[in-house]
Design a protein around this nucleic acid. Sequence first.
DNA 1: AAATGAACCTGTTTGC
DNA 2: TGCAAACAGGTTCATT
Length: 295
Amino acid sequence: MFTYGAASNGERLLPVTAMEVWLPELPEVEVVRSGLDTLIRNRRIRQVQLYRRALRYPLPAGMAERLRGLTVLAVERRGKYLLFRLDGSEILVWHLGMTGQFHVLAESDSPGRHEHAVFVLDGGLSLRYRDMRRFGYAGLLPADAWQRHPWFAGLGPEPLQEGFDDAYLYGRCHSRAAPVKQVLMDAAVVVGIGNIYACEALFRASIDPFLPAHHLALLQAGALVKAVKDVLREAIAAGGSTISDFVRADGRPGYFHHAFTVYQRQGQPCVRCGSPILRRLQSGRGTFYCSGCQR
DNA sequence: AAATGAACCTGTTTGC
DNA sequence: TGCAAACAGGTTCATT
């Protein structure tokens, strides 16, 4: 679930909440990135209030002081990490974990439940971080060396870039006996694909999630790469409409609910063959698939 | 080296 | 009715 705020009538800022539970995989993080970049780019951080010493990990020592007075130059993304470019020597890195949300609200708006950090910006705005389960985490890393930090050093390619292609995925699957779904969710192979989009992409490519990765044929790898790119692009486009809809004059949210074909559809008929969608536990995670289509 | 499972956390749903 | 167990999934760590 994500919440956004933006100017909808004059200077007033209204929070809007999406009712669907949306866990932050790559498309959701990209939508948040794009929204934040629009709303807070070139804003100066006047003050930082932290209501917790630690989320998943301790927050950086002296974080409030190190951020005060800096301007947000851009909000970027690597995998599921948000990167706040600043006009200083450090970069602010933030992972949303499972339930992290950023809101841009009026400075005067009262704090919400599970709000752990408030960044008071210029122009009467404030950026709030809210995280019910506190799986999120943040770091202040050297702007010229953040990529060497352990969070980033071992990451695989971005799935929407050219380096993620059939030959690459086939090669990375060759030495792996684990189920192909596990390999697809391994950030060292490719970033940003969590349980939801792994299930959806495997369905689109008609591949059995339990297939040992080294049994994946090159043609199947190609189909899977295409399915991943398609489903991520569609989800980003759907979320993107969230932002543009929201800025409409009437301020109505108009959220687009991304249509899942297998995720959380167990017992319902497969959209392709009509067989019931099944759910099986795989390494402690629910795997949703069609036993008729995926083999 | 690779695979598996636990841990972190809390609101919601399910089952007895 | 009420309470407890199961469940949700991103990432790291420990164990096999």
